[in-house]
Design a protein around this nucleic acid. Sequence first.
DNA 1: AATGGACTCAACCGCCGCGGC
DNA 2: GGCCGCGGCGGTTGAGTCCAT
Length: 278
Amino acid sequence: MGRSPCCSKEGLNRGAWTALEDKILTAYIKAHGEGQWRNLPKRAGLKRCGKSCRLRWLNYLRPDIKRGNISHDEEELIIRLHKLLGNRWSLIAGRLPGRTDNEIKNYWNTTLGKKIAKSQPSSASQENKSSLAEQPAKTRGLSDSAAAADHRSKLIRTRASRCTRVVIPNPVTLSLPIENTPATAVPPLRRVDHLHFTNQPPKNSDGDEEAYYSEVPDQGHYYKGTDHDHEVETVTTGIFGNGDILNDWPVVPGINFLEDDDAILDLDSLLLDSDEWP
DNA sequence: AATGGACTCAACCGCCGCGGC
DNA sequence: GGCCGCGGCGGTTGAGTCCAT
């Protein structure tokens, strides 16, 4: 059986696109819109595979593509997003208007990766979670099996998903012995509006740290991933409009991750031993 | 000026998830 | 539920370019 290739390879052009091909593709998409990539070459009169047309359009011909060097600000943002998301190039590109995933991937592989490797010299005794997340295990020269073991033992964010509301447990609250701490003893979650995240949770009038949650749909988003050390989901707070990424927090296992409006604050689930934290 | 290694980046490949049937 | 087509993604390749010698 097996899946048929996306296109018949016979008689199709490969390699660099010519100006004429670009013109034909652009004109066709302007007239008929994107999509139907498989049929597009035939209809447009191009001797190209549909995938090739799609790639050419998305990475090069689209009118909103930003040309030119990556600015310092963009570079900073890429580094921050990569630290957060790993090699999720399309997600990273989504935060950089006019830049394509391919461009960012290339930029990372040719420039930023090296730059960061230089600034963070590897040390066998001092492994850095974020630097490990920067490269897939395979490209770090590990075998498949070693890569699998590596994947299990390190923090690797998989398939981040965007959320607008999360519950962030308070480390102080969590450090209370569970058996002596009935759910009623958990301070009420405080909604933090106009949130400005820092590494410190908000404090109450007595100066004690509180558990809290936030809702900042317009200012930024949260990304959840997986901490394979602890088999728990993690959430990174604060990817704000200016690209700041402020902190990672674990999401308590079993807690509802509030991707929609059906927010349920499960107080019991906040009673997690702080030893569980990464 | 010639050459060869390093670098860049557009393009390709293979895989995956999703939706339709 | 399984198959299949399609779009999308990340990893890799290789032609072209740059640069040091």
